[in-house]
């Protein structure tokens, strides 16, 4: 019995050494979103897959189901042991992920970040679509425009603890103080990334604050949730809705005029640009100090320091939303 056991063990290790092995020599790019169920990152994925096809590289796209810093670290460490060539990360926790990313770099794996940056010494480039500042300003500007610069508004966020949500709220507040002192924030409510809960919260906010002029939904499930609440309350036009979301989830509300504006970076382009930059970095075509970068079918992008800039956010409105399908 023990002999047979040892024999099978030997056989197994032999199999392992022959095993899967270096069958394909394609470059392997691994993309880590904050949460892979989020529509925002699903459309990122579509763009990154297009870039991977264009470039002939293999793409891994995996992340936590919920936004979870601990799971992100585990996934990066899995990829390090798998030996991928480039890792691209949207960091949930700046310091937390950086430890793992430094480890990857020390083993010869190239690292870029997208969507949310890690510590500068833990990656080569940051594909910068959406500085928190950019998001905060775009949201606050649009809100103020719709309200004519004054009135009460409320925010619905994902959870009270999510890092990016907090950062955006800080930027929104900064912009409000600088430019729109007439706007007043009367409440911040979490919806746990649940559309149904966002709807209940929006209902409560509207009844508690009769002078509410606008609801700002800063996580993607909250935008249709808030819009449905406004519609059911019969307050279309009286209470405006703006938020960060995807065209497909909000199309009907935008066309009905309940939701005024959905703000988003062209997330598909973000995914495409990220993979292009990652591959160029791995192939040595993109070097520190570059001032511009040509990304396949999207053309030239500006590079500032170690930030590759995607450009301004896009505003989906009634007029243009039908041109997009994601």
């Amino acid at each position: 019995m023990p002999l047979r056991f040892v024999a099978s063990l030997l056989l197994v290790s032999l199999g392992a050494s022959l095993g899967w092995g270096a069958a394909d020599s394609k470059l392997m790019v691994a993309l880590l979103p904050k949460s892979k169920g989020n529509a925002y990152f699903i459309s990122c994925k579509a763009g990154s897959e297009r870039a991977a096809r264009d470039l002939g590289v293999e793409l891994l796209f995996d992340g936590p189901v919920d936004s979870n810093a601990a799971k992100q670290n585990e996934i990066v460490e899995n990829w390090i042991t798998l030996g991928v060539d480039v890792i691209a990360v949207a960091a949930e926790n700046r310091e937390g992920i950086s430890t793992a990313l430094r480890k990857a770099r020390s083993q010869g794996i190239q690292v870029v970040t997208f969507d949310a940056d890690a510590m500068p010494d833990a990656r080569s480039f940051f594909v910068n679509q959406a500085t928190p500042q950019g998001i905060g300003e775009a949201l606050m500007d649009e809100a103020a425009r719709l309200c004519g610069g004054e009135g009460e508004f409320a925010i619905i966020c994902a959870t009270l603890t999510a890092g990016n949500q907090r950062e955006w709220q800080r930027e929104i507040e900064r912009r409000r103080q600088d430019r729109y002192p007439g706007m007043k924030l009367v409440g911040v409510r979490p919806c746990d990334d649940l559309k149904d809960r966002a709807q209940s919260e929006a209902t409560a906010l509207m009844s508690a604050h009769p002078k509410l002029r606008l609801i700002m939904a800063i996580c993607s499930p909250a935008v249709p949730g808030a819009a449905e609440a406004v519609k059911q309350a019969g307050k279309k036009g009286a209470v405006r809705v703006v938020g960060l979301g995807l065209p497909n989830e909000n199309r009907r509300y935008v066309k009905e005029g309940v939701t005024d504006t959905v703000i988003l970076w062209k997330t598909e382009d973000l995914g495409y640009l990220t993979v292009q930059a990652a591959v160029a970095l791995a192939r040595g075509e993109l070097k520190p100090g570059a001032s511009s970068f040509k990304a396949g079918s999207l053309g030239e992008f500006r590079v500032e320091g170690d930030n590759i800039l995607l450009g301004k956010p896009f505003l989906f409105t009634r007029e243009n939303i039908d041109q997009f399908d994601f």
């Binding site: 197994v12 290790s13 199999g15 392992a16 050494s17 095993g19 899967w20 092995g21 270096a22 020599s25 798998l82 030996g83 060539d85």
Partner: peptide, 9 residues
Amino acid sequence: YHFGTTTNR
């Protein structure tokens, strides 16, 4: 051990 160990490039 058998299926999850590989040699990378």
